[in-house]
């Protein structure tokens, strides 16, 4: 099958960037979307041109590095599917696919489709962890946690930090990313000790990075490859209000 690829090309962070149109004639329905880009790049290399940079690692939807905006939707048209899990069988011969990087000032483009996601690392560094002195492994079930809490915490913990929530949000808000971690740890006893400090530090860092405010469009939930619910955002808000009103931060 033939696929027309209209792809963003940007030489570096300072470059203004532009679109390029390429035609991939030997695409086939079994290819993943990233394989389409691979074939296109081989073509470009063959023509003596520079290949398009894109991030990828696991190619199975768990590392979170491959996200791009495909025909206007973060990670493409299929829900709960990362860019790397999208296949060409979802397209028809002759289709045009527009590929753009995440666009947010807090996630600036490094080159072509690759963006700098260290803002996420700094939000995590502000409190997205549990400080524990790791001794021997505790006995299983030594720390009882209600089943519903574990399930919810696990759902929130599935975030792979891809940044689709920011990319799809009309406001470029990182609320789902930040909220998922806060919600995850707020439900578990291990997170309890730093609960107050964590939510304030992470939310403040999120604001610091220049992400926009959330307007409850819930677009993030729709594009999240893990389908994390915006209830994470509501939980983050509750935690923040609680920390501010009663907390000791």
């Amino acid at each position: 099958m033939t696929i027309n690829v209209r792809v963003w090309r940007q030489d570096g962070p300072e470059d203004r960037g532009r679109f390029e149109n390429h035609v991939v004639t030997d695409a086939n329905p079994h290819m993943s979307f990233l394989e389409l880009l691979d074939v296109m790049n081989e073509q470009l290399i063959g023509e003596g041109k520079e290949p398009i940079e894109f991030d990828h690692d696991c190619r199975e939807g768990i590392c979170g590095s491959c996200g791009v905006v495909i025909n206007g939707t973060a990670h493409g048209p299929k829900q709960r599917t990362a860019s790397c899990q999208l296949h060409m069988r979802d397209y028809s011969d002759g289709d045009t696919i527009v590929v753009e990087p995440w666009r947010a000032s807090a996630l600036p483009v490094i080159k072509d489709l690759v963006v700098d996601r260290t803002a996420f690392d700094r939000i995590m560094g502000a409190g997205g962890y549990v400080s524990v002195a790791t001794g021997g492994a505790p006995d299983a079930n030594a720390l009882p946690v209600p089943k519903e809490d574990v399930d919810a915490a696990f759902d929130y913990a599935t975030c792979i930090g891809c940044g689709a929530c920011v990319a799809a949000c009309p406001n470029s808000s990182a609320s789902l990313f930040t909220g998922a971690k806060i919600a995850h740890l707020s439900l578990l006893p291990q997170g309890e000790a730093e609960r107050t400090r964590r939510v304030v530090a992470m939310v403040d860092q999120m604001a610091e990075e220049g992400f926009g405010d959330c307007s409850n469009h819930a677009e993030c939930e729709a594009v999240c490859p893990k389908g994390i619910s915006i209830s994470a955002i509501a939980r983050m808000r509750r935690e923040y209000v609680k920390a501010m009103v009663v907390g000791d931060s």
Binding site: V69, P77, G212, D213
Partner: peptide
């Protein structure tokens, strides 16, 4: 909030499409 969002995305997408439900993005919300 509006000005903040403008600053947070200085360059718009050439093509933008909602992923559909469970998104609550509507003409009203935008």
């Amino acid at each position: 909030i509006y000005l903040g969002k403008r600053k947070a995305r200085p360059q718009n997408y050439e093509k933008y499409a909602s992923a559909g439900k469970p998104s609550r993005q509507t003409l009203a919300s935008r």
